[in-house]
Every structure is written in C-alpha cells, then in structure tokens.
Design a protein around this nucleic acid. Structure first.
Lengths: 234, 234
DNA sequence: TAGTGGTCTAGACCACCCG
DNA sequence: GGGTGGTCTAGACCACTAT
C-alpha cells in the first residue's frame, strides 16, 4: 500500500484513500478527516484532496455532505457503465463483417400502445422501419423502429436502404434524453425467422426511447440473436 | 440558450457548451477553441473552463488531446449508468415486502466450468448457495452462487439462513473488480419451479463475478421472474 | 518545437446543514 | 453558529503530441 509522501498527485491520493477503505482502515459508515486535515497529511493542498475525494464519491465509494463531512459508504453503489455502441461498431469490434439490410419502411398512424408509450397523440404520423444487422452474414440483430415524423420531418427524405436509421439519427439528431431497457422476450414468428432462432426461444431484447428537448423522437426495439450476452467490467 | 456573461460557474459553462454542441454551432468532429480562449469569452479562468470541458468529455460528448485540442465527438458514446442495487433495495423501492429464503448450502469441489471461468484450480473448494428472493411473496429472483472459500474463509462461518450472501459479501468483502453480464436464458426445470414460470420460457439473467485483489471471490447467477425489465434513464 | 490540455498551488468566499 | 465541502481565482510548471 502506498504511503503518504510529498508531491502526491490527486491520483496518488485517490489510491491511498481507496486502499484505506478497502483495508477497513476507514471502515464503512465512518467519517474521514476533513479535506484540510488530509491536505496536511498528504503535504498537498485542499484543492487536490478535494478532487481525489470528489472523484471517489462519483465512483460510489464515499458520500460527502457539507458540514457533515465525508463518509465511507457501507455498500458501495457501484455503477455499471455500459457504453451503447452502434451495432455497426459492436460488430466491427469482433472482427466480423457488418452487413445491413432494410426489411420494411412505411408511414403509418401511431398504434395506440405507441402513442401512450411516447405520450403523443393517437394516430400521429410515424415512420415505421424494420431492418436487419448481420455479422459475417449471420443474423445479429433485428431492429424494429418507429420515428415520430413531426419531431424530425427530415426523416421522410432520408434513405435507409443503404444504412440504418440508427446511423442517420445519431448524425442528425442530438438527442437530449434517453430511456434504455433490457429484458428477455420470447421469439415470435417474425423474430424467429429473422434471427434464425427456434420459435418461442428466449431473445435478449433492448428497448430504447429517445427525446429531443422533451419531444419524443424514436422508439426502437432491438432483438439480439440467440447467445447474445451483454458484458461490462468495472 | 444561456448567453455567456460574467461570473459563470463551471456548470453554466457546461450548459452553454452542451447547447452549442446540440445546436450544431460546434458541429461533430469540429475543434473547440482552446481553454484559454474560452476562459476569455466566458470571463472566467482556465481552471473553471477546464472542469466544464473535462466533465463533458467524461460524459462522452468531447474528446480531448494535448496539443490537438478539444473535439466534438460525432456519435456521442453515451454511457448508460446502471446502479446495481441489492435485491432487497430493489424490491423495497417498489414498495413491496422483501422476503428471503435459503434453498441450499453446501461445500463442494468446483466443477470444471467454474474453475475455468474463475481461473482457479480444478476441484478447489467452493461454497455453493441457492436462494430465493420474494417481493410480496411472489418470486422475484432465484440466485445461484459459488463462493471461493480460499479467497474468503470467513464465509464458512457465516449464516445464510436469515439473509442472503449478497448482503453478507457486500458488508464483508470490499471487492475491487467486477464483471457483469446480462442475457436471456431458457427456464430449466429448477428455475421454472422457483420462479413459477413455464418451462422453457425466457428468463432475464444476470451473471456477476467479483474479485478481491485479482483473486476471484464469487460468481452469482441471478434469474429474474418473468416480466422483469431493467431500465435506465440518462 | 510550439501549442494544448493536465495538474498543482495558495488563497479566498460562500452555501449548506448538523448540532 | 460554526465547520465542512463547493467552487472560483490567478498563476505556474509540466507532459504530451501534432506538425
């Protein structure tokens, strides 16, 4: 374990503090010395100590309150960070070749469930898209999407035969808000055919809703091919 | 959109910069002015501008390189942050009553797949646990867990009849490393019975491996009751 | 090699909130 | 009320890396 010495960077201080937490030198629920005291111990300044502690708090190890001081959290609420890559990138990273294909594209009135889900008017015009993403010609993801045309009229002029709506939207719409859900669903007839999975088999499914300044832009359902596993390290 | 003025906090600056990104005033791939220039524009100091830009970079909007400058990312790698609550807390938040039940606890040699998964010796001693978590007496989660006794011998003296291993481990082991995976699995006979789900139905499943200073501590498989949906906002 | 971000210092004022 | 963290300032040196 590193020992306090002079010229410690905020990274060094983070590490020392983390070690003390993990070795129960500062037990859960206990109070740390004040920033000022720690600055003295580490022969540093309060600014530097502050950054170290602030980051540890962001990472879920500490809780900080004015006047109350800095406390060690008993059960660190570790935060899993999933990056949400474009399908294309996700496939490219595995070294496989990416292929895209448009299955269907049509304009329609929003079905009731969608209206209520996105909080838009019943039968409001939406662009309905279905597409497939392949990795080395094996089905990887089946995408079903609805885009609220009123929120982004340019979508009607976009061409989705060559590349997916996700690519287009990411470039075009600086979304401000996002809801992401994961679940396990049962492969219905369509999903089963597109993903080459037995009917009724479990399918890892993501649902993604995007807003632009509180106006709903799009809802996408992403069905992943059998065996898909979403993993994160931290 | 906020306009630059004097006395802007780093939060204000963040907001202004974010607005400019989202309104394409600073387009994707374009270079921002240097910190020094921005400090002048915002009548602030470089330190303050630095914090604003640093945080925006952490949040996935910007890419910063020495000498190269600060660039707007074209497809913001938005990061989904899932907090990973204890089952107990997750249930409590819904307002339901939490109930725990130990199904099985026994010491055994690690099966081959586990050894290879955790990178431990074949047949190394592990504590095998199975338990159930209920919400208002409805099955919520079926937990299957293995704990490497060598990594944490105290686990042999712990009592898991009243509360789950997760609670105990969180209190006892300051894990340093974590791998978390999500997938959709098919309910086998056991899972089907415990979760009261039809055999073969999709089950949302999480797998969690924890290390303490590079030594594997535990692997848990968490099977969620039908209809479970994991959601995050950002 | 020169310009950019990364970080540290020393000091200051303030907002919050526990006791 | 007073102590703690939150933040800002003004300045400095340094590390990296594009050119």
């Amino acid at each position: 374990m590193p020992a306090p010495r002079a010229n410690m960077s905020y990274r060094d201080i983070k590490q020392v503090v983390l070690d003390r937490i993990q070795n129960r030198i500062w037990a859960p629920d206990s109070l740390l010395p004040s920033e000022t005291e720690l600055a003295v111990e580490f022969s540093s300044t309060r600014t530097t100590v502050n950054r170290a502690l602030r980051e540890l708090a962001e990472e879920g190890y500490l809780e900080r309150k004015r006047k109350a001081g800095t406390r060690v959290l008993n059960s660190p609420v570790r935060k899993a960070q999933f990056s949400i890559p474009l399908v294309r990138d996700e496939i490219a990273e595995t070294g496989a070749a990416y292929r895209y294909s448009l299955v269907e594209s049509r304009i329609m009135p929003a079905p009731a469930w969608l209206s209520s889900r996105l909080d838009i008017l019943q039968k409001q015009e939406v662009l309905h898209l279905r597409c497939m993403h392949y990795a080395d010609n094996a089905p990887f993801q089946y995408e079903v999407r609805w885009v609220v045309t009123e929120s982004i009229p340019e979508v009607l002029d976009a061409d989705f035969t060559e590349s997916g709506p996700n690519d287009w939207l990411v470039q075009k719409v600086p979304f401000t808000n996002l809801e992401l859900s994961f679940m396990a669903t049962k492969a219905d007839q369509t999903v089963s055919e597109f993903l080459d999975a037995p009917l009724g088999d479990p399918v890892f499914t993501a649902e993604r809703i995007t807003w632009l300044r509180n106006k709903p832009v799009t809802l996408a359902k992403l069905f992943f091919a059998p065996g898909y596993k979403m993993t994160t390290h931290l």
